[in-house]
Write a protein that binds this DNA or RNA. Structure first.
Lengths: 256, 256
DNA sequence: GTGGTTATTTCATTATTCGCAACGGCATTT
DNA sequence: AAATGCCGTTGCGAATAATGAAATAACCAC
């Protein structure tokens, strides 16, 4: 593995789990030597991506991470543009709404507004959603490049619940349905008892760059709710796309 | 420079400047070989920290950055806790308010609420504020560890305007005054025509972890305004500290 | 087509990183 | 109070991974 790869996996380890981590724990979990781990951390600290508590010697993610994220948001204001639409959709549906952005590793949850109801679906910020097991994933696959879709269809489809789609044919069907309808549905594929409806947010090139989804406890979804929510998420997704890239279909500078 | 250092400087280059950058530009600006630059980028792409447009071949910061930042925010909800206080202070003063967090490189601007007035101070998200030339910096220095303060006092004090504090004695005086008052003032040290008032946000150990500041055009500040705003920022800073760490003075788990 | 530009790949060289092991500090234990 | 165990830090030869020049491939404009 490349050196930067190791450094980044340290960052990810620092991000997951406890807020602060000891050197020995990091080294053990990552499988690197203590010396190696520390040298990598020193490099990261020099650039502000990691901080170390002077007294406890524990390591944590640094403010440099936030800086990079802010610079990125300034260049491509995904959250700033999408946030009001997400809030509006949450208010309209009364259910948990979450927004995600595509990355090589999966769909990254970048905003969540939880339902005010006591029985609600909870999604963690920063969570990575599997493509084949969530409504968001299906919606994304239905509107992404052939290459990416093939990558998922030919890869493994790990089961998260007994209801997770496990075979390629069923998955392809769901994707086709989603493409035809403009929105997807997910039924307990990732968490039991949760129904979701999602729609893709399209980029300037017409391919999906992220998704927006409504997630609700199965017991609360009645006849017609799916269709209603489906129309709402699709409208919201379209609205976000227009806010980011101008009227859809009109060729505009990408991500400008 | 270490390999990860190079990789991180690429990330910073991608963050500053245009939203998307060509390989040749990156290599030239960073001073690396094209081959080296590309290999580093490939490693970063593999981990989602950088993305490449398939058609234009341009590189940009990836969603992995946002993911790390979200995980960090989940561990240490600085923004989530501070945001309402910042908004409140902005509403109360009617001027631009900005929040910053300490990092080895300086004070990183993590939130800005601009005044609604036509003539207003504008601060960029992600900007790094110099310690010696801003009200925020002075406030921070007044309440940081001796070691950090010494580092600044013994280092160079580059001038950004003709008013930037250039000698150590004056700087030390300003710091002492700020420590006594609980808030600092900055007068055109970073941008001409801008007056600022800042207060430190204290961590569990009593040392500053960031600052909150009010910035206004000099012409709008009248007698008494500085004192009034000073009291307001100090109160806001204290409020943020309490939200993060519980009642100040009470020993609590750090950053928990 | 053709020329010029830019991205990507290849490969031998070299510098950097690696992991072992020893050192030093700190706190709890005996 | 001395000893023990744990963790972080540092030094050094071995080995791996990074490097840069040059070749190749893709692309665009003309």
């Amino acid at each position: 593995m490349s050196t930067v790869g190791k450094a980044i996996s340290l960052l990810e380890m620092l991000g997951s789990g406890a807020p602060e981590t000891a050197l020995a724990d990091l080294a053990k979990c990552a499988g690197f030597d203590k010396a190696t781990t520390r040298r990598l951390l020193v490099s990261l600290i020099a650039h502000g991506l990691v901080e170390q508590d002077e007294t406890t010697r524990l390591y944590r993610l640094g403010a440099g991470i936030a800086r990079l994220a802010l610079m990125r948001e300034a260049q491509f204001p995904f959250l700033r543009m999408a946030a009001p639409v997400v809030e509006q959709l949450a208010a309209e549906t009364g259910e948990t709404v979450h927004l995600s952005e595509y990355s090589k590793r999966g769909l990254i949850t970048v905003q969540v507004i939880e339902s005010a109801k006591a029985n609600r679906v909870s999604v963690q910020l920063g969570d990575v959603l599997p493509m084949h097991a969530t409504a968001s994933g299906i919606a994304f696959l239905a509107f992404t490049e052939e290459r990416v879709r093939e990558g998922i269809l030919t890869g493994p489809l790990p089961a998260f619940t007994p209801f997770t789609i496990g075979d390629v044919e069923t998955l392809a069907e769901h994707i086709a349905t989603a493409r035809a309808r403009g929105h997807s549905t997910g039924s307990q594929g990732y968490e039991e008892g949760v129904l979701s409806v999602a729609a893709p947010i399209l980029g300037a090139d017409g391919f999906a760059i992220g998704t927006i989804a409504v997630a609700a406890p199965q017991v609360r979804i009645h006849k017609g709710d799916i269709e209603r929510h489906g129309a709402s998420v699709a409208a919201a997704a379209h609205e976000i796309g227009e806010r980011l890239f101008g009227p859809q279909g009109l060729p505009s500078r990408k991500r400008a």
